Simulated scan of single mutants.
Amino acid sequence: MIRETLAVGLLGCNCTVLGDETSREAIVVDPGYDIPRILAVLAKHQLTVKQIVVTHAHIDHIASAFELKQITGAPIVYNQADLPLVAIMEEQAAWIEVAVPEVKPPDHSPADEEKITVRGIEATVLHTPGHTEGSLCLYIPTESLLLAGDTLFARSIGRTDLPGGNTAKILESIRERLLPLPDATLVVPGHGPTTTIVRERTSNPFLMG
């Protein structure tokens, strides 16, 4: 599988392109900003976007999803529980002093453990509320890969002081949905460096005790 992660936008959101080497079909996860860079990665690997997945509806993760849909025709997938965040996109833009992007409701709101597929790649949706009510992660077991959005970070967890955040929920989500994954699972968080499940289970200070 082709996997490229690039930090996009002012807040360095990790946008990940997943592509199948045979079908050349792709999933783009969290196209927050920097569409030209995302398109360059797709062109380099001769990939066609078939799914656009947004882990949660904070501006830095969703801002360019609709633009990417207009260019590629691919549907946008995210949890409709985050629509209240879409409704305050103007307020979100003011938080980081950027222009208000055009953001639309999802073309599809996936159920927990639903499969999101393109030819050659199958990812499982894990609903992990806490950072936002609709936060989700994508787990690709054949690649030992977890795209964790802003739920789990290297030695940290997602903040819960923004609208829709809940500390008890995010801790429950991590402990019940993510930490039981295999030790060697590579975690690509929504920002910052990669980590592994075993590393976070054994050394993440927010998860001790």
Rank of each mutant, 00 (worst) to 15 (best):
V103D: 00
H127C: 13
L171N: 13
T167M: 14
G120R: 06
T142A: 14
P101W: 03
A148V: 10
T167I: 13
E102V: 15
A123H: 08
D183C: 01
V118Y: 07
P106K: 10
V103G: 01
I121L: 15
T124V: 15
L126T: 04
L179M: 01
A99N: 14
G165R: 11
S144H: 02
T142H: 13
S109R: 04
E114Y: 14
E176I: 02
V118K: 10
L171V: 13
S173I: 14
I174C: 10
D161Y: 02
E176H: 01
P141D: 01
L178C: 05
P180E: 01
V103T: 02
G120V: 05
L179I: 00
S173L: 08
H131C: 03
E172T: 11
V125M: 10
H127M: 12
I157F: 12
H131A: 07
H108A: 10
Y139E: 05
K115T: 15
D112R: 13
G164L: 08
G120M: 03
T124W: 13
H108I: 05
P110Y: 09
A184M: 00
D161I: 04
S173K: 05
L171F: 08
H127I: 15
R155N: 06
L147T: 03
R119M: 13
T132I: 14
T151Y: 01
R159Y: 05
E114L: 10
P105T: 14
E122S: 15
Y139W: 15
A99K: 15
S135F: 11
L181A: 01
T124I: 15
T128Q: 07
A148C: 14
V103R: 02
D161M: 02
G134R: 05
P180Y: 01
T185I: 00
G130F: 09
L146E: 03
G149E: 08
S173W: 04
D161N: 07
I140N: 07
D112F: 04
S135P: 12
L171G: 09
P141W: 04
L171T: 12
I157W: 08
Y139A: 03
P129V: 11
G120W: 05
S144N: 15
L171Y: 10
L126F: 07
A148W: 02
E143I: 03
H108G: 09
K169G: 07
R155I: 01
V98G: 09
K115W: 13
P129I: 09
L178P: 02
P105G: 06
G164K: 03
L178T: 02
T124F: 11
V125D: 06
A184Y: 00
L181V: 02
E143A: 09
V98F: 09
K169T: 04
V100N: 05
E114G: 11
Y139V: 02
I174N: 07
I116H: 08
E113G: 13
P141R: 00
A99D: 15
L181G: 02
C137Q: 00
T185M: 03
T128A: 06
V125P: 06
C137Y: 00
F153D: 05
L171M: 12
R155P: 03
G149C: 12
S173N: 04
R119N: 15
K169M: 12
K169S: 12
A99L: 10
V100K: 14
A184E: 00
T132R: 01
D107G: 13
L146P: 06
G165E: 01
L171A: 08
T167F: 09
Y139G: 02
G134D: 02
E172N: 08
G165K: 06
L162E: 05
V118G: 00
L136H: 14
